[in-house]
């Protein structure tokens, strides 16, 4: 995934290490636990790739700071999500609230959010993008929860995925280029990532995290679910889940995987076309799309 950006990622890791070291004494162990472990760094890689696609200049301090800010926003969303899910493990180790307690974890998320803004305080455009991202993530979570068990369609999934993961990757694209040129590309890439994760869950791809069965029990509209519930009988099981109905739904979702993969191919093609249209050097973005697409297959 991170091919070609090892140097930038090393700089980012050093930056985050220094940030943790310089943080408040009370916060230091929590931040080290959350930030200095395993991470896929997919969002920072997206930011660096967008920067490289529009500029020949190497990623200086500004893209590194912006990448750190994005990683922080992402971690705030993970901490809050783990608390709400009562998840015990994340990335192979105890979640922050399980290791340190609920109150410290919640306070750490606030601390990280504040520092994310401070990292980009010299750049009004970046501040606005971070603020936009927090707003959209919050609203998307409420929307997704409120729409659970509604027998909706693929277009609705597209809207949810676009606001949830899509907004995060839009921010990466905008912060990487310093303008709006690759916003739509970021949106499509985020949606692709969201869909690949949905399909990967059904395939039991543990590497991507999450859980297809849990989503199904909660009536969350994933891409395979949106395709499966086109069948009215399946839509009824989705709306009023029973153990037998859930089994049928799971079987239906497995059967829907070729259609879901086909739809993901369409999004990948849209993203590649957008990269070719908008970027000065689209190859790096096209590689990113192709690597993302591999996540579900």
């Amino acid at each position: 995934m991170a091919e070609g950006f090892e140097e930038e990622l090393d700089q980012l890791k050093t930056f985050l290490q220094a940030w943790v070291e310089g943080s408040n004494q009370e916060m230091k162990p929590l931040l080290a636990w959350q930030f200095l472990g395993r991470s896929k760094y997919f969002r920072p890689v997206t930011l660096f790739a967008c920067h490289a696609a529009m500029s020949d200049a190497p990623s200086g301090p500004s893209p590194i700071r912006a990448a750190a800010a994005i990683e922080m926003v992402h971690n705030v969303s993970l901490i809050v999500d783990d608390i709400l899910d009562r998840s015990r493990y994340r990335r192979g180790k105890l979640t922050l609230h399980c290791r340190f307690g609920m109150l410290p974890a919640l306070m750490a998320s606030g601390y990280v959010a504040a520092d994310a803004y401070e990292l980009v305080d010299k750049n009004a455009f970046a501040i606005r993008r971070v603020a936009e991202l927090f707003r959209r993530l919050a609203a998307a979570e409420i929307l997704q929860w409120r729409l659970r068990r509604h027998p909706l369609g693929i277009e609705d999934w597209r809207m949810i995925a676009g606001e949830d993961t899509g907004s995060m990757f839009e921010a990466c694209a905008c912060l990487g280029t310093g303008d709006e040129t690759l916003r739509r590309f970021g949106h499509l890439l985020g949606m692709l990532y969201h869909g690949c994760d949905d399909v990967g869950d059904v395939r039991g791809t543990l590497a991507l995290g999450g859980g297809g069965e849990e989503d199904l029990r909660d009536g969350i509209l994933t891409l395979p679910a949106a395709i499966t519930i086109r069948d009215p009988e399946m839509a009824l099981h989705f709306r009023e889940p029973t153990p037998a109905g859930l089994e049928q739904l799971l079987a239906g979702m497995q059967a829907s995987l070729p259609a879901a993969e086909g739809y993901l191919d369409t999004i990948a093609a849209e993203a590649e076309a957008e990269a070719s249209r908008a970027a000065r050097s689209p190859d790096v973005l096209i590689d990113l799309v192709r690597n993302t697409r591999k996540l579900s297959v």
């Binding site: 999500d81 899910d85 998840s87 979570e141 929860w145 859980g211 989503d215």
Partner: peptide, 9 residues
């Protein structure tokens, strides 16, 4: 109420 993981990592 339980809630499944929603945020993609």
């Amino acid at each position: 109420p339980r809630r499944a993981t929603r945020v993609k990592d």
